[in-house]
């Protein structure tokens, strides 16, 4: 089963990463979206997403890296159904 890992705190991605498979997904929301603006947050995961509303709110949408696909709330809901389950790694 493939999981969507929802990360809302930038410090939590590295903690969850050992458990994330390459076919799982990572969705950055809330404060964690800043990771999508940084070159250093590259992962082995093929499905990397960041919540567009949270990037816009923080004024950093234009700084997001191409390796993170921007998704809005409707796509967020769809992603939770595309993957077999969602794991919010608090």
């Amino acid at each position: 089963m493939n999981s969507l890992y929802i990360i809302n705190n930038p410090q939590k991605l590295s903690e969850a990463l050992p458990f994330i498979g390459e076919n799982d997904g990572i969705l950055l929301i809330e404060d964690a979206v800043v990771l999508a603006t940084s070159d250093s947050a590259q992962t082995h995961c093929k499905n990397q997403f960041a919540l567009e509303e949270d990037l816009i709110a923080r004024g950093v949408k234009d700084k997001s890296q191409a390796s993170w696909e921007l998704v809005d709330y409707p796509r967020f809901v769809e992603l939770t159904l595309t993957f077999d389950k969602s794991i919010t790694w608090l």
């Binding site: 809302n8 809330e30 404060d31 409707p74 967020f76 809901v77 769809e78």
Partner: peptide, 19 residues
Amino acid sequence: SQGQFSAIEFARTLLEQGH
């Protein structure tokens, strides 16, 4: 924190989609 705002937005969106 932002979590309750995110949850409300997610709830509204999924209901709009007919779930």
